[in-house]
Design a binder for these strands. Sequence first.
DNA 1: CTTGCTTATGGTGTCGACAATTTTAGCCGA
DNA 2: TCGGCTAAAATTGTCGACACCATAAGCAAG
Lengths: 230, 230
Amino acid sequence: MLNADETEAAGDSLGGSGLAARLYDDLTRAILAGTLAPGEKLSEPAIARSFGASRAPVREAIRRLQERGLVTYAVNQGARVAQPSAAEFLALLDVREAMEGMAARLAATHMEASEVATLEALVAGHRGEIERNPLGAYLQDDPETDFHRRIARGSGNPILADLLCEQFYPRLRLCRRLHRTVQGRGREAWREHLRITEAIGQHDGELAEILMRRHIRAARAALQTALAAP
Amino acid sequence: MLNADETEAAGDSLGGSGLAARLYDDLTRAILAGTLAPGEKLSEPAIARSFGASRAPVREAIRRLQERGLVTYAVNQGARVAQPSAAEFLALLDVREAMEGMAARLAATHMEASEVATLEALVAGHRGEIERNPLGAYLQDDPETDFHRRIARGSGNPILADLLCEQFYPRLRLCRRLHRTVQGRGREAWREHLRITEAIGQHDGELAEILMRRHIRAARAALQTALAAP
DNA sequence: CTTGCTTATGGTGTCGACAATTTTAGCCGA
DNA sequence: TCGGCTAAAATTGTCGACACCATAAGCAAG
């Protein structure tokens, strides 16, 4: 049912030393990997047994997942893996537009030259992946998110960075799993990334914000049209 | 699907029927009222005794408070009431600028005429309070927040509304308690509210966003100068 | 064969208890 | 008198247990 890999390679682990923290990480990974399908019930005793733990830390991990929007909770009915609707997906992208726009603006005036360099390297590296797979989503799993995560952290605003990295990106991945995101925007998205990086490198916060907001709004529009005509 | 109907009158209570939910509400109120001072330790056994409950629901409530930023947590050391630094206050306002700007934009195209009317009535009602106390903070406790809360809900975006109402506004109140916010901006703030309301009434989302962002940036700047020269 | 009630099963919400760790109190020595 | 070491007390993290609720199975009546 649940395979517990300790690697933490994927990215967003907060891994405190406690048992509840490890459970939280493992459950997060299981949800994002699809091992726990959307809508599936999360039985506290079952999870506890499968991890050889008690219900207390399992409960704690699940409540945190609820707070992060990855599971839904009904009183006396327990938790289920969230099944974000298309409307929720779109709503999430609206908030994301606002927050990442601000992140880009702040990153433009806050990122060190070395951070900008790694960002540029990241985008340059993505180019090869695009060439190999021009129709690919580009935002399928992580290369896209890495770019955005880097900017979020580069904003120098810990509240903003945590909100984006710990709350929004996992939730978005769950949404993408459910609503097949539009394919084929890869090349354009990459160009937009390039321009955003340039604006940040020139410390032009205003432009970086505008470009980032456009970037996300374009993705949102593509999703909306994809949803309208299946 | 996210339902946002709350029977609670006062404001930010999520009051589920459970005991943990009531504890969460009471602790939130105690923190925001100052009954529990910033930095004070939150002893699980003590709180449990004082409420005649067990530690389990208390723990759950405290973990939720941590998730909302009202409490800091250290492993094996328990929880303390958060003591947001001035930097955190400013960071919070940056994120708020982005999110409330988006909220105003969405509210302009989403609010019903009746909702706009109640918003206008709210602002009109505030005028009297300003006249009675022109130097007053205007954002001291709730009249200010009510206005913003109404717009957040009026955005029609449940994710945005919940983030603002349940996470940001309580946290901001805690920040204001710690760092004496600037006094005397009441009249200008009120005028800004008026103009924002007008823009929303005319369904001018773009303008509403600009005005809202200016409004919050002005408050942030006032705070910054107040912090610089005591 | 279907419909409604009754019962059984499983799960959640809460409780008290225990080991491990942290904090406090007390003591000794300088 | 003060600083550091030791022991005691309190607190946290986790566990197993029990009542209440919800859903699923079984049964009776039509």
